[in-house]
Amino acid sequence: MAKIDSEVGGDVTFFHTSQLDQLINLARENSLWYLLFGLACCGIELIQTGGPRADLMRFGAIPRASPRQADFMIVAGTLTYKMAERAKLLYDQMSEPKYVISMGSCANCGGLFQLAYSVCKGVDKVVPVDVYVPGCPPRPEALTEGLIRLQDKVRNERWQDKRRAPVQGTGAA
C-alpha cells in the first residue's frame, strides 16, 4: 500500500500491486466461517473458544449453523459410527472450497476410546482433514493455533486448484 504522505497533500493515489490469487486469498483467509459441529466434550471447548476470552471471531471466523454457509468444519469430539454417516452428509453439503479441522484426540484417531466398539477411530476415515489439533480436549489457544495454520494453508494455495467438478446427482438428502 502506498504510504500516505501527509506533507504532500492534494491528490494521493492508493495503489496495491498483487496477483489476483493473493488478493482473493487475502479475502478468503480472513473470512473463514465455520460449521458448528460440536459432537462431544470438545464441543464445550469450542464454545469457549468462540466465547469472550479466546474470541475466535477476531480472525474472521464466525460460527454458522448451516453447512451451506460454511467454509470449514470443526469436528469437535467423538465420532461414532452412527454419527459418521451424518458427518459425511454434512461435509458433502458444504460448498467448495472447503476445509476440515479435526479437534481433539477422538476426532484425530479415536483417542481414549480405542477399546470402544461403537466409535469411529478418526474423522479422517470419513472426510479429508486439513488440520489436526491434538489434546483431550485442546485448549482454546490450541484451537486458535489450528485456525491460524488453516489460514496459512489458505493463503499459500491457488484457490482455483481447490475447486473440483461438482458431484453429479447422488440424491443424498
Binding site: 469430539g77 452412527k82 477399546l115
Partner: peptide
C-alpha cells in the same frame, strides 16, 4: 445413540 461411546463396557476392561 449418536454419542454412544460404550463407556460402561470399557469399565469392564480398564
Amino acid at each position: 445413540g449418536y454419542l454412544h461411546r460404550s463407556i460402561e463396557k470399557i469399565g469392564e476392561v480398564t
